[in-house]
Structures are given as structure tokens and as C-alpha cells.
């Protein structure tokens, strides 16, 4: 797009990315898209916890934010392997990479991440307050956990995109991606949970870990797609 008028190029790029975003959203809600699998998994984990931990309501409400975060993290990882693999299987990935020459491939990856987050992870964030009730959490804690999930889960998707891009050519890459990505998501988990606790437990701060969480998401929004684009460009065969 070099040499074109700046404003026109921006408008064009945003239109192109909007088309990709809408396509991926459509695919995630159509049959076989798997948008609901994450939510069902999330629900299953949270509903199981009280049976395992026992009916100690105080204990449940104390570990509630951590359990919600861990379950959401695992549910996020669940659908990641399809992020690029579905496109690779039908040949779309070739054209996405080919067109990455016209507009940055990293931008394409970022758009796919955002669509994946909206289609598969946002439902988790919406379901989190309801599931917080199972954990006997107080309203403030539920609100704080949902807010930290809203801000923190995009980071998991961005890291996951890099893992998904590396493992795109592997036929059973799903578990590998989870193992690759899990260590990298630990900081997100730590700051997400500590911000959620900060909102309810008095001496612990809320704002500082929350801001670090937001910074992590912004940082990974750049690094994740760039790394994934690099892996996709060199990983095609």
C-alpha cells in the first residue's frame, strides 16, 4: 500500500479487517464453530468445584476468584488450536498469508484474535458473574473478577495465537498449544487473580495489579500477532 494517500489506506485497511472479523464471527456462531464449547467447559469446571471442595461457603467464596480465573484460562486455551488450523485445512490460510503482502499479516492475525475473543471468550466473561454465584462470591468480588477477566483474557488469546501459529501444521496440535502457551499465561493469571482479590480483601491493592494486567494485554496485543505472523510466514508448507 506504499505510496497511496494515507487516509484512504487506513479506511481501506479497516474495511478489509472488518470483513475478516465478520467472517470469523459468522463462522464461530454457525454449526461446528465451537463458540459454545468453551462456555460449557467453563460451566462444567465451576459446577464441579463445590462438589470437590465441600460445602464450606467461606472457603468457596475465598477461592472463588482464583477458580473462576483458572477455569476461564483453561476454557480459553480449549478452542485456540482451531484459530489457524481451520483456515489451513481448507486452503484459506495460503490466501491470508499471500494477501499479508498487501496489508501486514500481523494485522490479519490481530483481527482473527479479536474475532476469536469476541466469539469464544467474551461469552465466558458474560457467564462469569452467574458462575460466581455458585462459588458464593459477594457482588463486589463477582464484578471485580468479571472486569479483570474482560481486561485480561485478550492477553491469553494473543499469546495463544503465537502458539497456534507455531503448531498450525501439526495434526493434533491442541494439547501442544496448551502446554506451550500455559507458562506464558501465568503472569496474566497472577495479576488477574490478585486484582480480583484486591477488590474484596482490604489491605491488598486493586488498582496496581489491574493496571499491570491492562498493560500486559496491550503489550501482548502487539507482540503476539507479530510473533504469530512470523511463525505463519515461515511455517507454511
Amino acid at each position: 500500500m506504499a505510496g497511496r494517500p494515507e487516509r484512504g489506506a487506513w479506511a481501506q485497511a479497516s474495511q478489509i479487517m472488518l470483513a475478516l472479523f465478520l467472517r470469523d464471527i459468522r463462522l464461530s456462531i454457525r454449526a461446528g464453530g465451537g463458540a459454545l464449547i468453551g462456555v460449557i467447559f467453563f460451566l462444567a469446571v465451576i459446577v464441579t468445584i463445590p462438589f470437590g471442595v465441600g460445602p464450606d461457603l467461606n472457603l468457596l467464596s475465598r477461592i472463588g476468584p482464583a477458580i473462576l480465573w483458572i477455569a476461564a484460562l483453561l476454557a480459553c486455551l480449549l478452542g485456540l488450536d482451531r484459530l489457524f488450523q481451520a483456515d489451513r485445512e481448507d486452503g484459506s490460510l495460503d490466501l491470508l498469508v499471500l494477501n499479508g503482502d498487501r496489508h501486514m499479516l500481523a494485522l490479519t492475525v490481530l483481527t482473527k484474535c479479536l474475532a476469536h475473543w469476541t466469539g469464544s471468550v467474551l461469552p465466558l466473561v458474560v457467564a462469569a458473574p452467574l458462575l460466581g454465584l455458585f462459588m458464593n462470591m459477594e457482588p463486589l468480588g463477582i464484578g471485580a473478577t468479571a472486569l479483570t477477566l474482560l481486561v485480561g483474557t485478550p492477553a491469553i488469546t494473543f499469546i495463544g495465537a503465537a502458539g497456534a501459529a507455531v503448531a498450525v501444521a501439526l495434526p493434533r496440535g491442541g494439547l501442544l498449544i496448551s502446554v506451550l502457551v500455559l507458562p506464558l499465561t501465568i503472569p496474566v493469571l497472577i495479576f488477574g487473580v490478585s486484582a480480583s482479590y484486591g477488590a474484596v480483601a482490604d489491605p491488598a491493592p486493586f488498582l496496581q495489579p489491574f493496571l499491570i494486567l491492562a498493560a500486559l494485554t496491550l503489550f501482548l496485543a502487539v507482540l503476539g500477532p507479530l510473533a504469530a505472523a512470523l511463525a505463519l510466514r515461515h511455517g507454511t508448507d
Partner: peptide, 26 residues
């Protein structure tokens, strides 16, 4: 590039598929 694979999504209609590539490829 027209490869062995068709690069079309089976879950979307033909129009949606082509409309997407038309918008995406510029």
C-alpha cells in the same frame, strides 16, 4: 493463487465466501 484446496468455508454461503474474498483481497 488457486491451489488444490478451494479456500472456501463450507459453513458459509457461496455469496458470503466470495464477498469476503472480494473485500479482503482488495
Amino acid at each position: 493463487y488457486l491451489g488444490h484446496l478451494n479456500a472456501m468455508k463450507t459453513a458459509l454461503s457461496v455469496e458470503e465466501n466470495l464477498g469476503f474474498w472480494r473485500a479482503f483481497q482488495g
